[in-house]
């Protein structure tokens, strides 16, 4: 076996604009070095799946991109605009980035329709009737139009996650981040959410997904990134990383995940 020091896989700019450029990202939680010199470049309309064992820092990476966590070293640039450490730049960037959470995080005191129209009305100053039209169309797209007047507490997990997708889409983002969107769902509901995500992928959205659903990766991902111990180990097209990995760590992980 060839013991090599890891060289950080270097991405080169190909077609289209660079949607996200992460360079030399380092993050510490107190003393713990959780992200070590991570660099990643995402093109427009590219679909990236990040996978890895727990504790590898993949959720942290996504949350840093959206400024939910602060990074100490390195730079994150979104469509050319650099993400500063203060909060003002975050609001400019969040206009273009939408995020989905593992625990859906719908607002329980509003109906599903109100959940979707809240952002457009208060942040984009769209008149209410227009926001309702757009949101109803989005809810139809994810297949929940008939439940628009219900409250989040009255629907199932899969339906909640789909509404969460509609809510993010209502803000017309250019990039969508998914933080383990199906981990909290029953197996029957995972399919309905993945269908919506696949539909979204085919419509040309730039997506970064942290997930364990390898079939999804094989079906739509342009690139799969494997992370472990806070750094990127391997990256490449799904056939290569999932079928023919180069590093032993990747292979070990895939054995565990594919045997379930």
């Amino acid at each position: 076996m060839d013991i090599k020091s890891n060289t950080i896989p270097h991405e080169d700019d190909t077609s289209g604009r660079t949607a996200i450029a992460v360079k030399g990202l380092n993050k510490w939680y107190d003393e713990f070095h959780v992200l070590k010199d991570v660099s990643l470049s995402v093109q427009e309309k590219e679909i990236i799946v990040i996978c890895g064992p727990s504790g590898s820092g993949k959720s942290t990476l996504i949350r840093c991109i959206n400024h939910l966590e602060e990074h100490q070293e390195g730079s994150i640039t979104i469509f050319g605009e650099r993400l500063e450490k203060n909060k003002k730049s975050a609001t400019i960037i969040r206009d273009k980035v939408g995020m989905l959470f593992q625990s859906f995080n719908l607002f329980p005191h509003l109906t599903l329709l109100e959940n979707c129209t809240l952002g457009p009305i208060w942040l984009r100053n769209i008149p209410e009737y227009q926001a309702i039209e757009q949101s109803t169309a989005l809810l139809e797209r994810v297949g929940i139009a008939n439940l628009a007047q219900k409250y989040p507490g009255q629907i199932s997990g899969g339906q909640q996650q789909r509404v969460a997708i509609a809510r993010s889409l209502a803000m017309e983002p250019k990039i969508m981040l998914f933080d383990e969107p199906t981990s909290a769902l029953d197996p029957e509901m995972i399919k309905e959410v993945l269908d919506v995500m696949i539909d979204l992928a085919h419509s040309g959205m730039t997506m970064i997904c942290v997930t364990h659903e390898m079939q999804f990766a094989q079906q739509v991902a342009d690139r799969v990134v494997f992370m472990a111990e806070g750094e990127i180990v391997e990256t490449g097209p799904p056939e290569q990383v999932l079928g023919n990995p180069k590093w032993d760590r990747t292979s070990l992980f895939l054995e565990h995940i594919l045997s379930h």
Partner: peptide, 15 residues
Amino acid sequence: IDPGQLEAASAIGFS
């Protein structure tokens, strides 16, 4: 209040 909601709100872009 679930802190996840605050994260969702800031992800949408609310100040």
